[in-house]
Design a protein around this nucleic acid. Structure first.
Lengths: 336, 336
DNA sequence: ACGACTCCTTGGAACGGTCCAAATTGCGTA
DNA sequence: TACGCAATTTGGACCGTTCCAAGGAGTCGT
């Protein structure tokens, strides 16, 4: 296992040709005579030759690698986006180098630096929380695309987001359509998407003349956060007939809180989440939600990155995809 | 953005020293005088120099990269293992190159080949389904560690698994302790771990003198599979008082099936899953389960890989971690 | 003043490929 | 038989580092 791997020179020697010809043959050039090709293939096969991608990268200055930074490996929306991106990257015959900052900004930035040292040809940032400053600095060195961070844009930067305003509006309209008026919101902190969703909630309530029914319980996009926010909401005066949670994970916490106090979902309280994570589809939960096209967003992001890398002039640097209402089992007409 | 990046030569020229000295300085060698060091650092800073990891890999023949193959990006147990591994890899200052076969063996094998071409120093396979043959071939070229595939072992291969026999026994004992005798099993197909769990179920039932109560509904470790298997189980004669599902995702399907026919969990039927995925902890589900130490398994695997790479002689090549019973809300004494 | 050391520095050969201009071959044609 | 042209093949420079043997420059003891 430890003896030197055969190189192009070894193959050349064994096939009785020059290393240049082997190089051509390995890349499938049509200029190689079929006799030579056969001899080379045979020699390579016998030696168990494997091209050295590192040397190749150095020589032709293309690493054929995309660097991906993922904020948290455990929030299901991130792997799902990654999955979409990964498929596109693979289909272009590129590799994926994955780093994760694990919530520590210092770690995150050294990891990103390592990606650049590896000469990645493109950078994909799947994260809610990278500072705009950092992103712009990275984008100055290599084509960069950001997922889920809407407000970042600039030269060389693309962003792929889904339309949170439209999505939040869809959520509210769905509840209005069902006849709800007493709608509360479980918010999600200060990250961009959560802020937008909260703003739209307020706006829609006001537009519907329900400004005085606005009730917001602060949470943090986690299950426990949703649970506790909903608990205090329910303890605090009459239960709303519907709750719009800032994301699915917290919506599931809200469901638990309702169960605790004996409110049945959706008969007593309707609940709608946001994101469209796969687990919401589990029959036991059956969560109505506004689904972001996560896989597609990942794929689009990768696609856009390649467009940039190919030198295509791309006009608009923020791609906005439309979310979709998934009506499942947690919303219904109000019974009160 | 597209002009050539500064190299070690540029830094050397600007600092007025040789490239060799810059190389030493960049690697923090103590032989560099502090005057030179300062000059070099200044020049590097001014130029925005970034070492080229590709060239470095080629020169010293160490890629400082671990290749990771993950079967499915969307089954939550895999990212969780990856997360554990990732932390260790990062702490060793290595990089992670991630590939995924996306259930297609052909793709999988070309992806693995690409990892080897990138000169990864170690290979981590997080997958249930790679053929032993393939794994052995890979391991012949580079230190390899396998997660969750117990039966593979051989020279240069390590496996990190959790003790499925013990775990399955714990599940059965938990149910026996609660007083259950009429226990059914929702199985998980032909993959190694599922087969073991089913075998132990049979064994334990027989040992307890309950051979005639053995009932197995075949499923495939998916939510829908669990749902359908449980449906047919419940349609098919009297409901068991407890169901042991081969994994958490299918256990959640089983819960849904119980709800459908109006059986309450755990009052009418107890349910226990296997894996310990994070979502089982969600309050709405509160699934009793046998938890595998997923993160720790990932970490151990990475650790073992580095041990091999360091040339440490490691005696035993299968590391078995103990699973743990998490008693949550889906199991209780039988009421019948 | 001189050799022996220690400390720093340096040029050049790898590393394993790609690329390119030039050399060699093979053939059909005049 | 020689010539021109297309088809192949080749040597060598280069990609940006690391590594190593060897070259200065001081410093110290005698």
């Amino acid at each position: 296992m430890s003896e030197r791997r055969p190189t192009i020179h070894d193959v050349a020697a064994r096939a009785g040709v020059s290393k240049s010809l082997v190089s051509l043959a390995m890349r499938g050039s049509p200029k190689v005579s079929s006799a030579s090709r056969t001899a080379i293939e045979k020699a390579a096969e016998e030696l168990g030759y494997r091209p050295n991608a590192t040397a190749r990268s150095l020589a032709d200055r293309r690493s054929r690698t995309i660097g991906v930074n993922m904020a948290e490996l455990d929030n299901p929306i991130f792997p799902q986006m990654l999955s979409g991106a990964h498929a596109v990257i693979r289909s272009r015959n590129y590799n994926t180098m994955l780093v994760s900052g694990e919530r520590d900004p210092a770690v995150e930035s050294t990891e990103l630096a390592k990606l650049l040292e590896f000469q990645v040809e493109g950078l994909m940032l799947i994260s809610h929380r990278l500072p705009a400053e950092t992103v712009r600095a990275l984008a100055a060195e290599v084509p960069t695309v950001v997922l889920t961070l809407r407000e970042i844009a600039g030269p060389g930067i693309d962003a792929v987001v889904s339309d949170d305003e439209a999505g939040a509006r869809m959520a509210m309209e769905h509840l209005f359509d069902l006849g709800h008026e007493d709608i509360a919101h479980v918010s999600g902190g200060t990250l961009e998407p959560a802020v937008v969703r909260e703003r739209i909630y307020r706006q829609e309530m006001e537009k519907a003349g329900l400004a005085d029914r606005i009730r917001i319980a602060e949470a943090d996009l986690t299950n426990l956060g949703g649970l506790e926010a909903a608990r205090s909401l329910l303890a605090d005066g009459p239960a709303p007939t519907a709750i719009f949670a800032s994301n699915d994970i917290s919506a599931i916490g809200v469901m638990a809180a309702c169960q605790e106090v004996g409110l049945s979902v959706p008969d007593d309280v309707s609940i709608i989440g946001y994101d469209g994570v796969a687990l919401g589809a589990l029959r036991t939960l059956s969560l109505t939600t506004i689904a972001q096209p996560l896989t597609e967003m990942g794929a689009m992001a990768a696609q856009r990155l390649f467009d940039r890398m190919d030198g295509k002039e791309v006009a608009d640097s923020t791609i906005m995809l439309e979310p979709e209402l998934l009506t499942r089992g947690t919303t219904a007409h109000p019974s009160r």
